[in-house]
C-alpha cells in the first residue's frame, strides 16, 4: 500500500516535471505531449470510476468525451462569429470563458450519461458493453450527419477559451490548467473510493445481492457512478477540444472508447493513478513505435494482446506488487 502511494507521487511529479523542464529548454512539442497525457488521464479517471470501481465495462465513454468537446466547440464558434447560440425563448450568446464552459460541458455530459446509463444499466455483462458502444456510435453518426456544426469535417474554432489571469495559448499555462483539473479529479476519485458511496459501488460489483440485502439499490449506485464518470470524461473532452482548437466526430468514435479502456488496463484497473500511468505509457509507446514503424498500431496490438493474456494488473500492479485490488 505504501509503495503504491510513493509510486503515485512519483508519477504525478514526473508528469509535472517533464513539461516544466521542456519549458526551460524550449521544447513546446513535449509540453503538448504531456498535456495530451494529462487530458487522457483525466478522461480515464472518469472511466475508472465506472469500470474500475463499479465493474461497468462501458465501451461508450467516447460519447461523453465527444459531447464535452462539442459543448466547447459549439459555444466558442458562436462567440467567435458573434452569432447568438439561441434566439428563442431567450437570447443566449456563445462564450469563450473556460469557467463558464467547463461546468456546462460537465453538466451536458452528465445529462447524456444519465440518459445512456438509465437505459444501459437495465442490462449487464456483454449486453452492457454492446449497448454503451451502440449509443456512442449513435452520437457519432448524429455528429457526422448534422451539417450545422461541421458534420463529418469537424468544427475548428481557432482560439482556446479564456481563463482569468492566464494566456491559455501559452502551452505551459494550458498544461497547468489540465494538470490541476487532473489532480482535482484524482482527489475526488480517492475520496469517493473511501466514502460510503465507493464502498457501496465496489460491493455492487462484487456481490449485488448482498448490497441489496443491506438496503442499497445497486441500480441507483451504479447510475450515480456512471453519471459522475461521464461528467469527468466530458470535462476531459472539453480540455481536449481546447488543446486542438478543433472538435470532430472522431472524438465520439469507437476507437476513442477503446483507447480509454486500454489506458486503464495498461495502468491497472481500479487503481488511483492507473489512468495516469496508462496514459503516459500509451502516448510514449505511440510516440516511440510511431517513430519506428508506419504500422505502429500492429505492434501496439501485439503488445496489448500479450499484456491482456499474460500480464494482468497493469503497470502499477507490476511495480507495486501488492493485491489492493482483486
Amino acid at each position: 500500500m505504501i509503495r503504491e502511494r510513493y509510486l503515485n507521487l512519483a508519477l504525478l511529479a514526473a508528469l509535472l516535471a517533464v513539461p516544466v523542464l521542456a519549458q526551460v529548454q524550449g521544447a513546446p512539442f513535449t509540453i503538448t505531449l504531456a498535456t495530451k497525457i494529462a487530458i487522457f488521464a483525466l478522461a480515464a479517471v472518469g472511466l475508472n470510476l465506472a469500470l474500475g470501481l463499479g465493474g461497468l465495462v462501458s465501451f461508450g465513454h467516447a460519447a461523453f468525451f465527444g459531447v464535452g468537446g462539442y459543448v466547447i466547440g459549439i459555444l466558442a464558434s458562436h462567440a467567435r462569429n458573434y452569432e447568438p447560440f439561441l434566439t428563442w425563448p431567450v437570447e443566449v450568446a456563445g462564450t469563450t470563458q473556460m469557467l463558464v464552459l467547463w461546468p456546462l460541458a460537465v453538466l451536458v455530459a452528465a445529462l447524456v450519461a444519465a440518459a445512456i446509463g438509465a437505459l444501459s444499466l437495465r442490462t449487464s455483462g456483454i449486453f452492457f458493453i454492446m449497448i454503451t458502444l451502440a449509443f456512442a456510435q449513435m452520437l457519432y453518426y448524429f455528429a457526422v450527419s448534422w451539417p450545422t456544426y461541421g458534420g463529418e469535417d469537424g468544427l475548428p474554432f481557432y482560439l482556446r477559451g479564456d481563463f482569468p489571469g492566464l494566456n491559455t495559448m501559452d502551452p505551459i499555462s494550458f498544461f497547468g490548467l489540465c494538470y490541476a483539473l487532473l489532480l482535482v479529479a484524482l482527489w475526488l476519485f480517492h475520496r469517493l473510493h473511501r466514502a460510503r458511496f465507493g464502498l457501496a459501488l465496489e460491493g455492487a460489483r462484487q456481490n449485488p445481492e448482498r448490497v441489496q440485502a443491506l438496503g442499497i439499490r445497486p441500480f441507483q449506485v451504479r447510475l450515480l457512478a456512471f453519471i459522475l464518470s461521464g461528467a469527468i470524461t466530458g470535462l476531459a473532452g472539453a480540455l481536449y477540444a481546447d488543446l486542438n482548437r478543433f472538435v470532430s466526430p472522431a472524438m465520439l468514435g469507437w476507437q476513442t472508447s477503446g483507447e480509454l479502456i486500454v489506458l486503464i488496463i495498461l495502468g491497472g484497473v481500479g487503481r488511483l493513478c492507473g489512468p495516469v500511468a496508462g496514459a503516459g505509457l500509451f502516448f510514449l509507446l505511440e510516440h516511440w513505435l510511431g517513430g519506428l514503424s508506419e504500422f505502429w498500431q500492429f505492434w501496439f496490438g501485439l503488445i496489448l494482446l500479450c499484456v491482456v493474456l499474460f500480464a494482468r494488473g497493469g503497470l502499477i500492479g507490476a511495480l507495486a506488487k501488492d493485491q489492493t485490488h482483486d
Partner: peptide
C-alpha cells in the same frame, strides 16, 4: 473486460 481488450488488440 479481458475479452474486450484482447479482441480490440486483434482489430489493431
Amino acid at each position: 473486460l479481458d475479452q474486450v481488450l484482447a479482441t480490440f488488440a486483434l482489430i489493431l
